[in-house]
Design a protein around this nucleic acid. Structure first.
Lengths: 143, 143
DNA sequence: TTAAAACCAGATAAATTTGTCTGATTAAAA
DNA sequence: TTTTAATCAGACAAATTTATCTGGTTTTAA
């Protein structure tokens, strides 16, 4: 197996990155997101609902409703989306599954893995979604 | 969620690291491994069976049987165990779940994630399990 | 030779994650 | 005002992962 993000989180990241490519006050119905990204409609709907609760996106109900970002793209970090969906536990728990892994009671690979995990966390915390607009458009339209 | 290794893989890594701390020709029954590492007996048995098939460990059947490493600890890399259990697909597939993510058709975070993934792969490929003997003993006996 | 202690094999069960369905509510547009 | 198109809520279903059970086979040791 060996995944990093859950499917939900992958889809959530895709969806938010996609929404960041849209014009400002244009709301995006879940069906459109579903089609553009090839994600089952009902599934992405649920994910969008939870991202709405988390305050990352906003929803507009009723006809010609949909979703849009709740903040400026430059204010949304990748880690925000990950935290909302998968949580941050993995950045604080043992990669080998040992109990109570800590600097005090390190697991065998504590050091080696710690470095990598920190780098991953730094990357996700520093990158904001406005940086990915072009690449996202390219990927979605080319793929 | 956000896991890196599956539970199976975590347990497999723990078990092999533990076996590397044992005396050379001493075979280790699955029950002992189960108790030492707090892993359900039947579950770790299955995992040990599959590691046996993969040639990483050897089994001795019958009374006073058990498992031991099939090679010298210095010849077993962490990545070997991961490959045997989880496979290497994740090192070659898109972290955002986009289809056909490649240098040609990169996903939005292709570069950023690629660096991290490569580092993870390098770490797992360079570290051999003999390096962890002491730390493993400490962790198991202290925890 | 026999009993005990281990691995082995395959089925089954439980838990979690992923995905679907139904109907209610909301709000814009005809 | 009514129809239509959307979110929302909660139950349900399927798939995957994790864990357990049962019984068989192997081999040592008493």
């Amino acid at each position: 197996m060996t995944v990093f993000f859950s499917k939900k989180c992958e889809y959530g990241l895709q969806a938010v990155l996609f929404m960041a490519t849209q014009e400002n006050d244009c709301v995006c119905p879940s069906e459109e997101i579903s089609k553009k990204l090839n994600i089952p409609k009902e599934f992405i709907s649920k994910i969008l609902q939870s991202l709405t609760e988390s305050g990352i996106i906003e929803s507009k109900k009723g006809k010609s409703g949909g979703f849009k970002l709740a903040k400026q793209p430059s204010k949304i970090k990748l880690i925000d989306i990950v935290e909302a969906i998968d949580g941050l536990e993995s950045f604080n728990s043992c990669v080998l599954g040992f109990p109570k892994c800590s600097p005090d009671k390190p697991c065998p690979v504590h050091e080696q893995w710690g470095v990598l995990r920190t780098k991953a966390h730094e990357m996700l915390s520093s990158e904001t979604i406005d940086k990915f607009k072009e690449k996202t458009l390219k990927k979605i339209n080319n793929a």
